[in-house]
Amino acid sequence: MTAVQERHEEPTKSAEEQRLEAAARKEKQLKWFWRIMGYITVLGVWEFAIADILGLATGRTLDENLLPGPLRIVETFPDIVASGRFFTSFGATLTRIGVGFGIALILGTAIGLLTQIKWFENFFRDFQTVGLTAPGLVWALVGLIIWGFKPMGWIFPIVMVTFALVSVNIAEGVRSLPKDLIDMAKAFGTPQLRRQREIVIPHLAPFIFTAIRFGFSIGWKVTVLTEVFSSNEGIGFEMRVASQLFRLDEFFTWVLSFFVFALFLEKVVLQYFERRFFHWRQEVATA
């Protein structure tokens, strides 16, 4: 750590180093330039030209109420927040993801650990494949048909689309447990509990992390889907109501705020925890 900082503070940098740093800066600027250009282009076309393009394609001019531009959507946002529905709906959806994915995490971990035993691996194999490949829509419909608006109606689909992601990742982590380190601990007579805490869990952490990351990104899509079908609260429900009432500005406001929220979770919250957990990798990478 200290050595690394010292190196950064060194006053004299060789010309080669300076050149490389400048190149890296340029690269980064370009990356951001194109990223922002992407946003400007998409939003710009949507705001100013989408009605004409769709009009040309269909031969009819498009009613601007059917596809409001981004400015109108942003204007609608404060209204939704002011009505209080924004927070209650986000809260409801998040609770569902939390409960559903929480159950999937427990179930998936248990199955992942069990598949270490060859018999269970065969027992669960095809169900895991189904869990990984079947579309969430199928489970959402099955949940609706069997349980209607009862909690199982939304718990079931979330669990079905995410448990296999968890179990497959955990199984992979357990399969690759560092036997050399565990043997080392054994040779020194290190207690079992300390071995678990200091070797097994740190080794599994990135696998669990991957499971959470992907599980979450799939989980929220299914959650919103179930709300569209079988709920009277949550973001999906609001989307359904808004679309049924042809309030498309409201509809897109819900969609966009969820995108922003998902981006925030992915880029800020998860990355924060990742940095904390895998601090040692940073240290090693910059050494």
Binding site: D180, L181, D183, M184, A185, A187, F188, G189, T190, R194, E198, I199, P202, W280, V284
Partner: peptide, 28 residues
């Protein structure tokens, strides 16, 4: 009381050098 030095160092990559030594101590 045994000690073991392996062909490869077998250190925990996620722990510092000091914590690696403490890891196998009776009273870390």
């Amino acid at each position: 009381n045994p000690g073991y030095v392996f062909q490869a160092a077998r250190l925990l990559p996620w722990r510092t050098v000091m914590d690696n030594l403490l890891f196998v101590q009776k009273d870390p």
